[in-house]
Computed example of a mutant assay.
Amino acid sequence: MIGGVEAGGTKFVLAIGTSTGEIVQRHTLETTHPDDTLREATYWFETRGPIAALGIASFGPLDLDRTSPKWGHITSTPKRGWANCDIVGWFRERLGCPVGFDTDVNAAALAEWNAWRQTDSTLAYVTVGTGIGGGVVVGGQVLGGKTHPEIGHIRVARHPLDRDFAGVCPYHGDCLEGLASGPAIEARWGHRLGDVEVKNAQDMIAHYLGQMCYSLFSITAVERIVLGGGVMQTEGLIELVREHTKQIDDGYLPTGIERQIETPLLGTKSGITGALLLASLALSAAKT
């Protein structure tokens, strides 16, 4: 058996499962101070017997450079107390097994690609929730190098009715995450998107997400974009995103790109399934 950790800014999802990503046991705990959260997570794994490997799919930013002394660390996150946390080192020392490590969205992208791979060789996964982040998978390999894509921090053109909102990103203000994430929606209107009664609210968010989708199709030539996260659970939003993507394209890219924007096949299990796949990859690498 192998283990998986989906480390989120609000909660940690833990799982015991198989190398194919099948979840056997699952547990959720609140993300608090690193020492408390990691200690509780470790105890959960220890009380369920030894695991052969662990996969960690974490919020970031992360140091993914294997040559770096900080590999396995959460780096400059605004999450209080978690900056420079050696999350890989913590689990590896206490559980004594190989550890796979990547962003939560890269892991989710890997899991969704695995679910869609009978039809697609390339796929992007983007979560739209507390933050906006994404990963791209090409032929089973996650796109990245010494760092990882930061899809949520691209610049987007302003919606005509959204000129005065400053944005909530502490680094960039009105980047995509600053304008279209869950906190941005609540800062602008005081409610979750599905509860906002302001005319054109959903259209405004779709305007920003449509730009992101078109940029991904144009730059990476992915065959499919999967949109997950709490904001994307808003009824009717994905249809609006498809419409805006099609309008931006205006017939330039191959026909039908708006139909290649989908919700996750794995539902809310994309991240933790991806963490188990990271564990499987780490176990395979340890055997070679």
Rank of each mutant, 00 (worst) to 15 (best):
P50A: 13
I51Q: 02
I51V: 09
I51T: 01
A53H: 05
A53I: 08
A53Y: 04
A53C: 00
L54W: 04
S58Q: 07
G60N: 07
G60E: 00
L62T: 02
D63L: 03
L64S: 01
L64C: 04
L64M: 09
D65K: 00
R66W: 06
K70Y: 15
I74C: 00
I74E: 08
S76R: 14
S76H: 12
S76T: 07
T77I: 00
K79T: 14
K79E: 05
K79S: 09
G81V: 07
G81F: 10
W82I: 03
A83L: 06
A83D: 04
A83P: 11
A83F: 12
N84I: 03
C85G: 03
D86I: 12
I87Y: 01
I87V: 15
V88P: 01
G89V: 05
G89N: 00
W90D: 07
W90A: 04
W90N: 04
E93D: 15
V99L: 05
V99D: 03
G100W: 01
D102L: 04
T103N: 15
T103S: 15
V105Y: 04
A107R: 02
A107Y: 01
A109H: 04
L110H: 14
A111Q: 13
E112M: 10
E112V: 09
E112W: 06
N114L: 12
N114V: 13
W116C: 15
R117Q: 15
Q118K: 11
Q118P: 06
T119V: 14
T119S: 11
T119C: 10
T119M: 09
D120C: 12
D120I: 14
S121G: 13
L123E: 01
L123M: 12
A124M: 14
Y125G: 00
Y125R: 02
Y125A: 03
T127N: 15
V128S: 04
G129R: 00
T130N: 15
G134K: 04
G134Y: 03
G139R: 08
G140D: 11
V142C: 14
